Amino acid sequence: MLEQQLFNALSLGSVYALFALGFTLVFGVLGVINLSHGAIFMLGSYVALLLVDKLSMPLPLALLAAMLVTGLIGFLVDYLILRPLRARNVPHLVPMIATIGVAIMLTNLTQGLFGTDNKRFPFGTIPEGSFNWGHLHVTAVQVGIIGISFVLMLVLLSIMRKTQLGRALRAIAESPKAAYLLGINVDGLFYLTSFAAAALGGAAGVLVGLSFNAISPYMGQPMLLKGIAVIILGGMGDIRGALIGGLFLGFAEVLTVAYISSDFRDAVAFGLLFLILLVRPSGMFGKILERKA
């Protein structure tokens, strides 16, 4: 039924949007496409799995802990790698290559520690409750994924639009030099942005792990490609665009699988992306952000 497919698409698209929000936040504020974001997404699922499996931690606490750990990893990536490159004012391609190296390192480290086989959450960890609403079958996991994703997205949007912190971040996105002259702690907010973006990526990793109950060291790469597609579709650096673009991609994939074929899922989704960009090369929401100073 169409209602069921639309609900499934909402569940998947909300995770895509959550992942892309962290991705676009780093680009919008730091001006860097952090290609280690997919590996950090993958690590979030492994952290939650270890805490649940080895320490018997409740799933909500494991989710928060995974966000904290991945946030710290994002901070370290910024402090140890991106900060020295910023200080040297290197071309934009250099941080991208550096974060590719970080992603490969994290993926290989995870592969060495846990192997390449899919891991699953222990039986009973994932809520199995469900209910029917007309022709719609809703599971507790789907409700949790949609709820958590939208809460985190709304919190981020509220911070960016209604707080002094959000105004400072928007000022840095426009011009880090001008923001510094205005007395804004630019370096501190760079670190905070990297922490928050990685935490959102880690949360998305946990939610995907719960949704499919399959965790592997290579799960970050396809999500990274989709995240890049989402932020380009929505408009580079635009948070609204990441939200709408993620939902669009989720709906395109699910409806293609349901009514065409799973073999054409990515072909149709990325084909639609291509057509939209032919009409609006800068994405759905405005022009590509550029540093002015």
Rank of each mutant, 00 (worst) to 15 (best):
L30A: 15
L49P: 03
Y46A: 03
V47R: 07
S36L: 05
A39R: 00
V47K: 06
V52C: 05
P58K: 14
A66R: 00
G44M: 01
L59C: 06
G38N: 11
Y46V: 03
H37V: 02
L61H: 11
D53E: 12
K54M: 12
N34S: 01
L50S: 11
G28A: 10
H37D: 02
G28F: 11
K54T: 12
H37Q: 08
G38H: 10
I40K: 05
G38W: 04
P58F: 13
D53N: 13
P60N: 09
L51D: 08
L35V: 08
L30E: 06
I40Q: 02
L64P: 06
L49F: 07
L43Y: 11
A48L: 01
K54C: 08
M42A: 02
F41V: 00
L61M: 12
S56A: 14
P60R: 01
G44R: 06
S45A: 15
S56I: 11
A65T: 07
L30Q: 09
L63Y: 00
K54Y: 13
A66Y: 06
L61W: 13
Y46M: 08
S45Q: 04
S45G: 14
A62Q: 04
L35W: 13
D53A: 14
G28S: 13
A39P: 05
L30N: 09
L43M: 11
I40Y: 04
L51I: 09
V29F: 14
V52R: 08
L55R: 08
M42K: 05
A66F: 06
D53K: 15
S36F: 05
L43T: 03
L49Y: 13
A66W: 05
A65N: 04
A66L: 04
L30V: 09
P58W: 12
A39E: 08
P60S: 11
S56W: 14
F41Y: 13
Y46D: 02
A62T: 07
G38C: 10
Y46S: 01
I40C: 09
L51H: 11
L30F: 10
M42Y: 05
V47L: 10
V47D: 07
G28Q: 03
L50A: 14
I40V: 14
L35F: 15
L50G: 06
A48G: 10
A65P: 07
A62P: 05
L30W: 03
L55E: 08
P58S: 15
L59T: 02
Y46W: 01
A62K: 06
N34V: 00
L51Y: 02
F41T: 00
G31V: 07
L50T: 12
P60I: 11
A39Y: 07
L43H: 04
P58T: 14
D53W: 10
K54L: 13
A62Y: 05
L64E: 07
S56L: 12
A39W: 09
G31H: 09
G44F: 08
V52M: 00
S36V: 00
V29K: 10
A66E: 04
S56C: 11
I40S: 05
A39M: 07
G44D: 02
L55K: 03
L55C: 14
L35P: 11
D53Y: 12
A62R: 06
Y46Q: 01
N34F: 03
